[in-house]
Design a protein around this nucleic acid. Structure first.
Lengths: 112, 112
DNA sequence: ATTTATGTATTATTATATCATAATATCAGA
DNA sequence: TCTGATATTATGATATAATAATACATAAAT
């Protein structure tokens, strides 16, 4: 894959930051990770993530507003699924980065 | 590229979220975007980004702690550069996603 | 040798946003 | 009406963002 000079050159950086922010939470990443395995109901997401129902719904809303997931209502359930496979690819890409292993030390600014 | 089922299956989700969060800010994205064009001094980053020096330094620290950029001191400047090209690839990947165009409407939860 | 200027980093501060929990609302079906 | 599934709202604790002010280090000028 070609690495561009300024990947966000013309893009709307604010929008970009919003999408990244929508993914940048352990709770939402957990949900996305589960949804990568296929469609799930809210209840299933709660069970498999260990997160509370209320929190899951809130996070799903954020993911929905950012077009990361889509929902389909089939009473009595709402099924959620990933809307954008590129998100998965992006996460795969990031997971291949170095430095993904060590946690930043908030008290040590000296490292390169 | 193969799309995995659970891309973050074994990964440290907390760490993942931290890296994403480190990127998920307009200021830091701007900086990363400029650095994608090559090494820059703090002053250059200030000029090219339009951000204040103090803010740039703060954001660079965050990027540094998350191993996204590295620095090299050559008096009287500190040169910063991207440490991890995969980050660029990741952003390219995300930029190809649909839904990157429309801004989420915080008052409308109804959309799919 | 002291001062001055330059480049960068740090700290303090305030406004705003986010996180997680709890409580409550909605809504369709039994 | 009662229940199950999901969504919304309220709330308090914590985190983040941006600005301003200041500190620090080195080099040049005096």
């Amino acid at each position: 894959m070609m690495v561009q000079a300024e990947p966000l050159g013309g893009a709307d950086i604010e929008r970009f930051a919003e999408v990244l922010k929508a993914l940048a939470s352990p709770a939402r990443l957990r949900i996305v990770n589960i949804l990568a395995g296929g469609e799930r109901t809210v209840t299933e997401l709660c069970e498999q993530s260990g997160l509370k129902q209320s929190l899951v719904s809130q996070q799903l809303k954020i993911l929905r507003l950012n077009h990361i997931v889509s929902s389909r209502k089939e009473v009595p359930h709402t099924y959620y699924s990933l809307k954008e496979r590129n998100v998965i690819r992006m996460l795969n890409c990031l997971s291949r980065c170095e430095g993904m292993d060590s946690v930043p030390d908030r008290n040590n600014a000296k490292e390169a």
